[in-house]
Design a protein around this nucleic acid. Sequence first.
RNA 1: GGGUGCUUAGCUCAGCUGGGAGAGCGUCGCCCUUACAAGGCGAAGGUCGUGGGUUCAAGCCCCUCAGCACCCACCA
Length: 1083
Amino acid sequence: MPSTIISSTAARVAETPPEGSGLAGTIGELETLIAEKAKDIRAIAAGRRPPPGLDVPRLTERVENVDPALFAHLPMAPDDAQDSEPPATVPLADEPEEVVTEPQARARAPQFEPPVATIPLDTEPEDIPTDPQPREPEQEVTAPPAPPAESETTTSIMSTTATTLAKTYDPHAIEKNLYEAWEDAGHFRPTGGETPYCIMLPPPNVTGSLHMGHAFQDTLMDALTRYHRMRGANVLWQCGTDHAGIATQMVVERQLGQKGISRHDLGREKFLEAVWAWKEESGGTISKQLRRMGASMDWSRERFTMDAGLSRAVTEVFVKLYEDGLIYRGKRLVNWDPVLNTAISDLEVVATEEAGKLWHIRYPLEHGAGHVVVATTRPETMLGDVAVAVHPDDERYQRIIGKTVRLPLCDRSIPVIADTYVDPGFGSGCVKITPAHDFNDYAVGERHKLPLINVFTDHAAINDDAPEQYRGLDRYAARARIVEDLKALGLLVRIDDHKLMVPRGDRSHAVIEPYLTDQWFVRIAPLAEPAIAAVEDGRIRFVPENWRKTYFEWMRNIEDWCISRQLWWGHRIPAWYDAEGTIYVGRTEAEARERGGLGADVVLTQDDDVLDTWFSSALWPFSTLGWPERTPELATFYPTSVLVTGFDIIFFWVARMIMMGLRFMGDVPFREVYIHGLVRDADGNKMSKSKGNILDPIDLIDGIDLETLVGKRTTGLMRPEDAPKIEAATRRQFAGGIPSYGCDALRFTFASLATQGRDIRFDLGRIEGYRNFCNKIWNAARFVLMMVEGHDLTNPTEHTHSALPERWIRSRLHHAVRVFTEAFDGYRFDLAAQAIYEFIWNEFCDWYIELAKVELNDPDTPEALKRGTRRALASVLETSLRLLHPLMPFITEEIWLKVAPLVGKTGRTIMHEPFPRLEDDDYDDHAIATFDWLATFILGVRRIRAENNIEPAKRLAVKVRGGAPFEQLWLQEYALFVRQLARLETIERVEGGDSEDAATALAGETTILVPLMDLIDPAVEIERLTKELARLEQDLTRTEAKLANESFVAKAPPEVVDKERRRALDNRDAIGRLTGQLTKLRK
RNA sequence: GGGUGCUUAGCUCAGCUGGGAGAGCGUCGCCCUUACAAGGCGAAGGUCGUGGGUUCAAGCCCCUCAGCACCCACCA
């Protein structure tokens, strides 16, 4: 189905809170206790403001008296992750041949060996030599194709012996092979965990191809799927495709048209064969593309809306609704597409503002002199006029109400009626009434019992009920002729320019005619009512919640749904007619006959029409699970967990699924609806073929050269004259083509763009940044493997006391897991992505790896400590990979398979490993405080170095003065780290207030002095300090003003006031120290 | 005519129940320091659209206005 949008968000579905256990209570109490203790410690701390940029908790000497055990589990949000075992990785077997009509009984099959071993290690690096994209020269230099030897390593995806990674991150080398291995191993099938989790893929058009909206949406669904799978849920991502009635039929008709054949030339049966052939030919495209996205959907359960099974569901629903009086056939005014020759629903009509004319026409009074003037935008419909209406209170026309006027050109008399529908202020205040060609007029006609005169054919030409001279003319030709004739008769008063909303078909773009035909309708009100209630009472939750309003708005004003289409491609309506036109509905002709009590001699003909595509889509959540059979899948996975979709199909699809689900399953089809935004280009324009600004997700993954891109964008245009413009814009924007970014980078980009707003601008700069992130991860992993190589980390008997860096990085990881999980559970993929990005890059790579290097390179560090560090490197990396996996499935798997054995993990795939859980033991507030202080120290020195242009390699001799006892202790204990990371020669403690001229930085209560010598320009340093002082003083002024405000002190919460007091103290202290230094420099 | 959303650094956007504004990209310095130049280390840059209100305290809550976007709707 044509979703042009993208969405994401997850819901916390089916997570069982670990409440009620005695353990929870105990932990809760402990946490409270610890939290109070931590607060206490901070409160005691002398209130000096932390160094710029860091909030360093103040710890006093009392810290030393606190039981370290208390810091072992500092307070964290309770972990709501399930304590589940990793899901079994042995998939359920199923028959290779899929019998779509029958729900698949999930027979347990004997466990089979995973096909892992059969994957050749020497998979050929196929896409390296054939890479069609010429790259930029620089890229050639920086990212040369991996030589065969190396790519061999990278493609040996399941190798357990290789512990090294290729030197350069090359997504091509890993993605495809990994996906095939996953699929072959059956990793995407439900694993049978206790809690079901199910997402229905909005079925794309079977003959369509993947666009950015799909790619975005699929990324989010896959992330949710992988996340819940790792958390141990029994996960089904149900996939399949939609027959997309009108769209597909149009394509095939166009193909035939190029050969000069119409579908009528072929006849129904042959035409349908042609459509099926087209479906077979092009139907696999989108499935292949979905695989490129890494989508972990259960392909063994793939469905198509015109499968026998789903078709049976359609028939069943039609018959039942008919039996219940909720489907009826009637002659009504419908939206008619005169090009496609079919009725369409209200939703398929899009109104666009277009320039038109307003013709003022004189209708002579039948009796006596005079006339009325009517204004119309559609003069040709006057042939079907049956009245002229005025407002009942309109003074001007009181005299003529009830009289008749002579309809020009038609030789008919029509009455003047009074109806409040008329707006006396618009035009002349007189309206021509044409009930057969206007929805408003239709209503007026019903009120006044007016006849209906249809003057059009199916093709919107004038029919034989109109005056002879117009018959056979197209509506616009007729319009011109009629206007001419009126002018000749002197009945045309004037023509005004007029902007009007023109209804057009969303597929054909033809101007839609209100047209009187026999159609099938769903009586919608009885279905809408419970569907409204389900959202009102929260059985279905919209995310973001404001979409409720849109939903309610539409559902409360909903009109009957016209479901019949005069097409051939689709589900044929199960109704038959006898010679008199009596309707017989049944699942089969035999059933219809039987119900009607008809003998075999009665000739029945089936209704020619098919059902609206959305009719079958509305049943998707249960028809794909086997309904109307009562299958185990249906019992397990219905209601599904969340629907991920765009706001453009809330009415088309979401609302209808809710109505049908409630009606036929007695329950909602999904518990949450995550509505995502629309993907636009970097300039905020909607992507469309005609604008020539389409980006193909696959091109972002694989890269594409400029010429090919230009070719893609300029062929098959509706308006070929736009091609030069599109080509120029494309050449400007993508001068070097599009480089290959890989699927993981694309997915991460989508996740990070999935904010709550309506639109998502896709900017290449963003994806490039995340490709770099992939590269960063890759290289960090290479480093870890390099450091760990040849060392056994799995020795479980050794218990080394964790060093500070390790305690710190585990605490930060703990934090990242918490933020990520909370964000994910709230469908905030952007925040989740940000959390993992910051952790891996800014904390693990920028700091922890650097700290580890210092330790591992230091000859004096005991081997036991180094072992701990190696273990931590591997373990933190391994956990990070699991955290990242839902968003970046490929690179995480590739690396994990090499890292996992080092930490004693034997799983065959990361995708069935447990998602990281929060361990209280991993959070250490003390370690964070210590590290923050050390970092502040290092950053202070670095800043002095940078601002004074001291060469990075130059080792500095610094002096420190003052500092709280624990700061002194930290500096002493971690001098190695400080010296290496700040590049120091020596750290010398000086006493007293007197010191030489030096550049100054503050870390807590410690003053860092970098002696001037010949390295530092006093002028630079004076400027730097002056600026810093000004900032501090301004801050102090504000803080003091606040504290001087009595009502602030009286009314603000005590902790806020305390904070301000501490701030003031900190500032005064820092100002004092800096002022002293500045004075000295200025001497 | 109804309805919804948006307006924060040059650009694209975060900012959770109100307690001294952040990120990415871009820009400017200095570095090819043996995981990564797809990199490292530093820096600059914002009266949070306007006007008012509530509050000790407003990017955040209320009202006004302005601009932008979208959805729905029968003004001929």
